[in-house]
């Protein structure tokens, strides 16, 4: 029925879908009030936008270099939408730099829709959603230059970043910006932790949209993800105990090959 190893993948996806549906249903009926734990990096986003508003300087947003098959880009788009709503509300300039021409129109649309939803369609500036080059170095150097030129007050970087993470963080720091950085790229998280005022570590970027909006549908997905993590923890504990007893092959083969 399934190709090797795809059966368990299917079960995991089915589990997540049922879990999201169940959590959402309970939320809608008022049977459960889920609360996401405090994530300081996300609280800092509004603070950073407030700072930019007071200083009358722009907020800078970088969605990372991922394409549409990268979950970090989808998470970043959700955060960008919320950031754009707040900047629209405060009448603060928002500059978004996109590294891929294929992603550019969608990002522009995300920002435009955020402004429209806040009733500030006329404040949306298409020229502030910018693409420079699909080439990493061209993009990176353009962003660094722009950060200095525009004297950004707040720099928010959420998504996939590579060697360029530290370059942006350092440039924004020199430009005097408060910074929030978040990525699930394990090699780059340390740079955000070291160079940014607030860092979102790995999984936290996926919880960001739910945390910022408190939208029941999004919160339900985080609850379901937590249930999936309980399952993962349970499987690891079971697998370790079986391996210690020398009997983990059956479980390992089932998970890898079924």
């Amino acid at each position: 029925m399934f190709a090797d190893g795809m059966g368990v993948d299917f079960l995991l996806i089915a589990f997540l879908m049922v879990a999201v549906g169940y959590a959402l249903e309970r939320t809608k009926k008022g049977l459960a009030k889920w609360q996401i734990r405090k994530i300081p990096g996300l609280d800092a986003i509004e603070e950073g936008i407030g700072r930019a508003t007071e200083m009358d300087r722009p907020v800078f947003y970088l969605p990372g270099s991922g394409g549409f098959s990268d979950p970090q880009l989808l998470a970043s788009m959700a955060v960008l939408s919320e950031v754009a709503k707040v900047t629209a509300r405060y009448d603060t300039r928002l500059i978004v730099c996109v590294p891929m021409s294929s992603v550019y129109p969608v990002i522009e649309e995300v920002v435009r829709q955020a402004y429209v939803s806040e009733g500030k369609a006329e404040r949306f500036r298409a020229e502030d959603v910018r693409w420079f080059s699909d080439h990493y170095f061209g993009y990176a150097i353009a962003i660094i230059g722009l950060m200095f030129k525009e004297k950004v007050a707040t720099n928010i970087m959420i998504g996939t970043f590579a060697f360029d993470a530290l370059m942006y963080a350092e440039a924004a720091n020199q430009a005097g910006a408060i910074q929030v950085g978040g990525t699930a790229a394990t090699t780059q998280i340390p740079f955000f932790v070291a160079a940014c005022d607030y860092a979102l570590i790995g999984e936290e970027i996926y919880a960001a949209a739910a945390y910022l909006t408190k939208d029941p549908v999004r919160v339900a997905t985080i609850v379901a993800e937590d249930w999936a993590k309980f399952l993962v923890t349970g499987l690891v504990v079971l697998g370790v105990l079986l391996q210690t007893a020398g009997k983990a092959d059956g479980l390992r083969n089932f998970l890898n090959q079924w």
Binding site: G5, V236, G239, L242, Q243, R252, N256
Partner: peptide, 14 residues
């Protein structure tokens, strides 16, 4: 999911 599963089974250490 395939990536997660391989990470889970890689954690089965005695």
């Amino acid at each position: 999911p395939g990536v997660f599963i391989s990470q889970i089974t890689a954690s089965f250490l005695a």
